[in-house]
Every structure is written in C-alpha cells, then in structure tokens.
Design a protein around this nucleic acid. Structure first.
Length: 313
DNA sequence: GCGACAG
DNA sequence: ATCTTGTCGC
C-alpha cells in the first residue's frame, strides 16, 4: 500500500489517532466503530509483516537481487528470440555510382557511449553521435543526456544499466524524423560475444530494431576464450600478416573477431555481431571507420560524453 | 574453494 | 567505467 516502510509507519500512526478519536466519540454508532476497527486492524496486519521483511530480514536483499538476476535472464532469453545475425538492411556498402543511388548507400553511422562522474558512479552522461561515412567521417549529429543510474554494473548484464539511456536518445531522434537517423549503430560493448550470446549491442539492436555492431575494448572471457589464447593466435597470425582473426570458443561457436585496427598495434579490439548485421559486414564497416584503435563513431561519442560531464563539474 | 567477469 | 606521469614520436 505504501512503498516506503517509514511512510507506512506514519500512516499507521495517523490511522491509530483517527481510530481512537472515533471510538471515544459519541457521534458514531457501534456498527461504524466496528467498521473502522476492521479497516485499521486489517491495515495493521497487512503492513506489519512487510515492515518485518524489509527492515529486519537480511536475506531479503540477496533474495531480491537473485530474483532480479532471474528476471534479467528471462528478458535476455525472450529478446534473444528476435535476434537476427545476418545482413538485414536496405542499404549497400559501397560508394554511390550514380546520384540517384545515394539513398541506398550506407552513409549515416551512429555511435553510442556512456561516461561516468569520477566521484559519483551513479551520475552518467549518455551520448549519441552520427557520422557521415561519405564525408570524411564528419559528426553530423550529437545529442547527450545526463542521468542518474540506479542499476549497478553486473558483468553479463551491462544492457540493463546502459541500454535505457541510449534507447531514449535514439527514440528522441527517430521521433523528430531527423534525416540523419543512423542506418547502422556501433555500440561500446559486445554483441554476441557474451556468456549467453546476447550483449549490449544485441539488446540495443533488438529494442531499437536497428542494425548494430558490438565493439569491445577488452575481451569478455566467454566459452574458454582468454587473452592468452588471443595473444597466441595474434602471434601465429602475425606471420601471415593478417590484421583480423576469428574468435572461436571451446564449443566451436564463432563469437566475433579480434581486429588490429591500426597496423602493428598489439592491443586489438573485439568486434561481434549485434543485430541484423553479419560478421563480415561488421568487420567491413568497422575498418571503414577506424582512424585510430577505437572506431570513430564510438570514439567521438566517448570524447563528447566525457566533455559534457566535465563541463558540468 | 578460488578466480574470472564487456562498461 | 574511473583514478594516475611523463615520455616517445609525428
């Protein structure tokens, strides 16, 4: 009835005053007194056990967080049914040969990122940028939103912390029918390179119904994939002078690719499929947008969200 | 039992 | 994610 235990306690105190006032009054019949008696005691017996559980039972905290985890698992499971890991978009990935072809070419690539305040980890700035692939990767759209996050970061459940803010930024842009609404979105977090094959990039892609690519700056250890194995592969592949290699788990599943975005760079980035994009396409787009180690859409979103946050102190 | 665990 | 110094090189 009352969400906060202190509020319900106040309400009960107030009700007991009313209760005794009514009992001592001459103006109410016995039936009316009995009715208020019933209301008061039913309220008391309904609220007391709740108070007890919330304030004195130390297990309620762990129980609720375990419950939350189960809910999150179910949500990931149901959203995963809508996941598409093949190319599913109208645009083409090349330069327009004719003027009338321009509408069919991938041009507007979005990037999203969150930054956090140094002192208060619950204060964050989410930023969406859109870059023009056909015009020197210029930033043609930028929007940020400052938020208080109440959801903690739990490994494997990053989307529940970050996706709501980013979705809001996307929907705001879509509602205004902005001509630069991204045709593809790059996300600072993994796609199917995830314990259950459904990382932030997939989550965001399904909810926004947008082609997405997941970019990890660090390797999430999944299905036996470790940095040591990756480094081993890196050395082997170095001989064949390749800049990408496939990440295959112990089960034989392909999770994505490690990519040396800059020639000779030791630390790779980890590219995985988000939604409605194949791995081959994802790698092509990422390579097109890599000036430095981090692809420009994400790098710009990162830089600008940090600026927004520091300008606020 | 301990360590590992995107941002 | 966040803190932190100088240092090397274009």
């Amino acid at each position: 009835m009352f969400s906060h235990p202190f509020l319900s306690l106040l309400a009960q105190t107030f009700l007991s005053f009313v209760f005794f006032f009514i009992l001592n009054s001459q103006f109410f019949s016995l039936l009316t007194q009995a009715f208020f008696c019933f209301v008061f005691f039913s309220f008391l017996f309904y609220q007391l056990p709740i108070l007890f559980v919330m304030e004195e039972n130390p297990c309620s905290e762990t129980h609720s967080s375990a419950q939350l985890r189960d809910e999150w698992l179910e949500i990931q499971d149901s959203l995963k049914k809508k996941l598409i890991t093949d190319d599913d978009f109208y645009w083409k990935l090349r330069l327009p040969a004719k003027k009338e072809e321009e509408e069919e070419i991938l041009r507007h690539v979005g990037g999203v990122d969150l930054s956090f305040a140094k002192d208060d980890p619950s204060t964050a700035c989410g930023t969406l940028v859109v870059l023009d692939l056909l015009n020197n990767l210029n930033v043609v759209y930028e929007d940020s939103s400052l938020v208080k996050l109440d959801v903690p970061y739990v490994p494997g459940f990053l989307a529940f912390r970050e996706a709501p803010v980013l979705l809001e930024l996307l929907e705001k842009m879509k509602k205004s029918a902005h001509p630069f609404y991204p045709q593809l979105l790059m996300v600072d977090g993994n796609g199917i390179l995830h314990p259950r094959g459904f990382g932030l990039a997939c989550h965001l892609g399904v909810l926004a119904n947008l082609p997405t690519v997941g970019i990890g700056k660090n390797l999430h250890h999944v299905d036996g994939l470790t940095l040591a194995k990756v480094r081993q592969l890196l050395e082997v592949k170095e001989n064949s002078s390749r800049d990408v290699f496939t990440l295959i788990g112990d089960s034989g599943r392909t999770f994505g690719m490690a990519l040396r975005s800059t020639q000779g760079l030791l630390k790779p980035i980890f590219v995985s499929v988000g939604h409605r994009v194949s791995l081959a396409t994802a790698i092509k787009v990422v390579k097109m947008t890599c000036r430095f180690r981090i692809p420009e859409p994400i790098r710009q979103a990162d830089i600008r969200s940090k600026q927004k946050l520091s300008s606020l102190f």
